[in-house]
Amino acid sequence: MNRLPGPLRRLLAALRALLVLTLVTGVVYPLAVTGLARLLPGRADGSLVQRDGRTVGSALVGQSFTDAAGHPVRTYFQSRPSAAGDGYDPLATGASNLGPEDVVDVLPAPGEKGRTSLLTQVCARSRAAGELEGVSGARPYCTPDGVGAVLKVFPAVGVPVRAVSVNQVCPATPFLAAYRGVKVECARPGEDYAAGRTVPVRGSVTRAEVPADAVTASGSGLDPHISVAYAEVQAPRVAKERGLPLRRVEELIRRHTTGRSLGFMGEPVVNVLELNLALDRPRG
């Protein structure tokens, strides 16, 4: 070996290092980690949840509780929205990447595709959740018909001469009759309002009854939990639909509430799948 040229010796040393590291990091380490994980029941296989011999979901990945038409099943607690693919798709995990300044919809012109702003998504979800739970779905910066309460004012600088409720399509009645003495118009698809000044209108709502996690998706789009507040809003509906005492449903919420991580990080949360399975479990 010592008689080999220097460059060849270095090449052989590099190959040996490659083979050893490949064996350690590509074979030994994955097998060791998988073996250790299997000592924790269910964790190595995605924390799958079994019911009557079949897999009904994962304790770590959220899912929808809707019927074939996409409507919420009223006997179950509903999960928070998801922006991962068509919803809770582990292969498309992620957020919508829409921020708080995304408040103006792109109204679809004939033959074209529009785009719904984050604000209108929140307003529509809040209205739908309010109707489902029998509470007010109103929230700041939302119109009564469930879109973003946003005006485009012309000119952008100076005394207004025109105001348009850009998220309310004609012939809808604008949520505001007038803005600074100027009559508010409904929006017409295909018309360009980019030159106007964007004016979000807070309205008179000071407190939203529908919690924030009922109208916004998580960063991963896979969150299996909801807040305790959202669970409590849903409890009266679930109890009524199942013919159960409300206190019984509230007790199940408490049993399936996880406290703050390490006692101080985050907020208490409720695992929706486990709670719904507990509702289906016969009382002994």
Rank of each mutant, 00 (worst) to 15 (best):
residue 31 L to G: 02
residue 53 G to T: 14
residue 27 V to I: 15
residue 237 R to F: 12
residue 258 T to K: 09
residue 25 T to V: 14
residue 105 D to L: 08
residue 27 V to C: 13
residue 223 D to A: 01
residue 246 L to I: 10
residue 176 L to P: 12
residue 77 F to M: 03
residue 215 V to A: 07
residue 225 H to E: 14
residue 163 A to K: 09
residue 208 A to T: 09
residue 92 A to T: 03
residue 225 H to K: 07
residue 93 T to H: 09
residue 61 V to W: 02
residue 172 A to H: 05
residue 41 P to L: 05
residue 132 L to T: 06
residue 249 V to C: 11
residue 31 L to Q: 14
residue 238 V to F: 09
residue 250 E to G: 12
residue 81 P to E: 03
residue 244 L to W: 14
residue 187 A to I: 05
residue 186 C to M: 04
residue 268 P to I: 03
residue 164 V to M: 12
residue 104 V to L: 04
residue 262 L to S: 09
residue 88 Y to R: 07
residue 250 E to A: 14
residue 28 V to A: 15
residue 75 T to M: 01
residue 244 L to H: 07
residue 262 L to P: 00
residue 54 R to Q: 13
residue 144 P to F: 02
residue 107 L to N: 01
residue 30 P to I: 06
residue 65 F to C: 02
residue 60 L to K: 04
residue 135 V to D: 11
residue 31 L to D: 06
residue 4 L to G: 05
residue 263 G to Q: 06
residue 251 E to Y: 02
residue 41 P to T: 01
residue 208 A to I: 03
residue 213 D to T: 07
residue 76 Y to S: 12
residue 275 L to V: 02
residue 133 E to F: 10
residue 172 A to R: 10
residue 38 R to Y: 03
residue 179 Y to V: 04
residue 282 P to F: 02
residue 10 R to Q: 13
residue 185 E to K: 03
residue 58 S to T: 04
residue 18 L to Q: 06
residue 236 P to R: 10
residue 76 Y to G: 01
residue 242 R to M: 09
residue 223 D to E: 05
residue 190 G to V: 03
residue 21 L to V: 15
residue 136 S to F: 08
residue 251 E to C: 00
residue 50 Q to N: 10
residue 38 R to P: 00
residue 102 D to P: 07
residue 93 T to P: 00
residue 38 R to F: 00
residue 157 V to F: 09
residue 45 D to K: 00
residue 159 V to W: 01
residue 202 R to V: 08
residue 223 D to Q: 00
residue 147 V to F: 07
residue 200 P to I: 08
residue 272 V to C: 08
residue 97 N to I: 15
residue 254 R to K: 11
residue 165 S to Q: 14
residue 195 A to R: 14
residue 55 T to V: 15
residue 134 G to D: 10
residue 261 S to V: 11
residue 12 L to R: 10
residue 157 V to R: 12
residue 104 V to K: 00
residue 272 V to W: 08
residue 149 A to S: 13
residue 20 V to F: 13
residue 239 A to G: 13
residue 117 S to E: 09
residue 84 A to M: 01
residue 145 D to E: 13
residue 9 R to G: 04
residue 70 G to V: 13
residue 92 A to H: 13
residue 150 V to M: 03
residue 65 F to L: 02
residue 74 R to W: 01
residue 204 S to L: 11
residue 264 F to G: 01
residue 47 S to N: 13
residue 279 L to T: 05
residue 118 L to V: 07
residue 196 G to K: 04
residue 209 E to D: 12
residue 79 S to M: 08
residue 47 S to T: 07
residue 120 T to Q: 06
residue 254 R to Y: 00
residue 77 F to P: 05
residue 180 R to V: 13
residue 212 A to P: 00
residue 101 E to A: 11
residue 141 Y to H: 15
residue 32 A to W: 14
residue 14 A to M: 14
residue 91 L to D: 02
residue 176 L to M: 14
residue 30 P to Y: 07
residue 98 L to Y: 04
residue 7 P to A: 06
residue 153 V to K: 02
residue 130 G to D: 01
residue 113 K to G: 07
residue 71 H to I: 00
residue 138 A to T: 00
residue 120 T to P: 10
residue 171 P to A: 06
residue 135 V to F: 11
residue 94 G to Q: 04
residue 90 P to S: 03
